[in-house]
């Protein structure tokens, strides 16, 4: 039949569509990331600060700090202060405290999130304990800094934003390297 060639072509094309859509399913992951960064979806914070480095002394923003432990996480984890007042353009610092009360070394990952989401795209962290995993030995207590800049371009309506961290126990996935205490 004359159709058989075009049939082969047709089926091949349809299969290509299928493969392309399967790949597209995975491509949604980076696409989503880009969208999140661009629009602050889900409170993903923005990347490097590229705005003016001068401080906008004309306005102040209340920055609140939240800490949540994932349900199976036994560390103590909290910010040193509940909130601070920041001027856009200035570098601010907040210390979070983590303490491993258990008798085992553990690793943890903190995941940041910003509310309102409209502000997330204007919140730049220059240093954060959430960039890496934290390993604490039994009984160890550490102070972890986060440094951030609130963008000068942040909409004027936003006067109040919340930086929230959720602490997850990732010991099972990333076992901490045991420290030889010499005993």
């Amino acid at each position: 039949m004359a159709d058989s060639i075009s049939m082969k072509k047709l089926v091949t094309r349809l299969l290509l569509v299928v493969v392309a859509m399967f790949v597209f399913g995975f491509a949604l992951v980076p696409i989503y990331d880009v969208m999140c960064k661009a629009f602050g979806i889900n409170g993903k914070t923005a990347g490097q600060y590229e705005g003016e480095q001068t401080v906008d002394a004309s306005r102040q923003v209340r920055v609140q700090f939240l800490s949540t432990n994932s349900a199976d996480m036994s560390w103590d984890f909290y910010p040193k202060h509940d909130e601070l007042t920041a001027n856009p353009g200035a570098v601010n610092e907040m210390i979070f405290i983590a303490h491993n009360p258990t008798d085992k070394p553990m690793s943890a990952q903190a995941v940041p999130s910003i509310a309102p989401s409209a502000a997330a795209a204007y919140f730049h962290k220059t240093e954060c304990f959430c960039f890496t995993q934290q390993v604490l030995q039994p009984g160890q207590r550490i102070e972890m800094p986060v440094r951030f800049i609130v963008d000068r371009d942040m909409p004027k309506e936003v006067k109040h934003l919340t930086l929230s961290y959720t602490l997850f126990d990732i010991t099972a996935r990333h076992p901490p390297v045991a420290v030889n205490t010499g005993g």
């Binding site: 889900n42 409170g43 939240l66 949540t68 432990n69 994932s70 349900a71 199976d72 995941v111 999130s113 910003i114 509310a115 309102p116 989401s117 919340t162 929230s164 959720t166 997850f168």
Partner: peptide, 27 residues
């Protein structure tokens, strides 16, 4: 927010319903 799976905090009389999502904070 949530400490484990996704929940949703709903009080009909306030017309407030927000998903509680682990790792994220919703307003």
């Amino acid at each position: 927010t949530s400490a484990d799976v996704i929940h949703s905090w709903w009080v009909p009389a306030f017309a407030v319903k927000r998903d509680a999502i682990p790792g994220f904070v919703n307003e």
